[in-house]
């Protein structure tokens, strides 16, 4: 199975919606790769500059209700083509969370206090995820290990490499 982790990008806000992740005007692109430059273009977050802040990041750490709004899977693909394969949040909107797992990517929910802890680890935090033990390790100004709960079916989707492969095999 593929490795999940990388340097963390902190997005300190609740309710970041999929229009902010990838505006609708780019939904006319017919390849995933074409979305790459437009990641988080309309994000309303003070001090955030997508062109400066995304470089080299592999994981997003954010607050509650991430990915709300439109069902556009482009919001997941734009992360994928920017080499971001994990989002860690206090909670997710249903469709975004399902889209992540359907693409074999991780949408990990952690309790509010664990998210708070992650936000205190400094500007440079390296995340590694171990799916088998359902643990994630965050190395920043100190190293902290968090356990997370994962829906068994979502885990099967990640192991299979996504919902299409799983569904084709099983139904």
């Amino acid at each position: 199975m593929k490795e999940f982790g990388g340097k963390a990008l902190f997005l300190d806000r609740n309710d970041i919606n999929t229009d902010e992740i990838i505006p609708a005007k780019y939904l006319t692109e017919n390849t995933k790769m074409a979305l790459q430059p437009f990641i988080l273009e309309d994000l309303k977050l003070g001090g955030f500059d997508p062109r400066r802040d995304i470089e080299g990041k592999g994981v997003i750490i954010t607050r509650a209700n991430f990915g709300c709004g439109s069902s556009r899977e482009h919001a997941v693909w734009v992360f994928e083509v920017n080499d971001i394969n994990v989002v860690i949040a206090e909670s997710f909107a249903r469709i975004f969370r399902q889209n992540m797992y359907n693409c074999g990517m991780l949408a990990i929910e952690l309790p509010k206090q664990d998210i708070e802890t992650l936000f205190t680890l400094g500007d440079t935090v390296e995340i590694s995820v171990d799916l088998a033990s359902a643990k994630l390790t965050a190395k920043g100004n100190k190293t902290v290990v968090f356990s997370f709960k994962m829906n068994e079916f979502d885990k099967k989707l990640v192991e299979a490499g996504g919902w299409l492969v799983y569904a084709d095999k099983n139904y």
Binding site: S71, E73, Q98, N99, L164, A167
Partner: peptide, 17 residues
């Protein structure tokens, strides 16, 4: 409402999770 992968499986198999 679903994403494109769910839609794709819906088109192909007529199922959704």
């Amino acid at each position: 409402g679903v994403g494109t992968t769910d839609l794709e499986v819906g088109i192909l198999k007529g199922v959704c999770s």
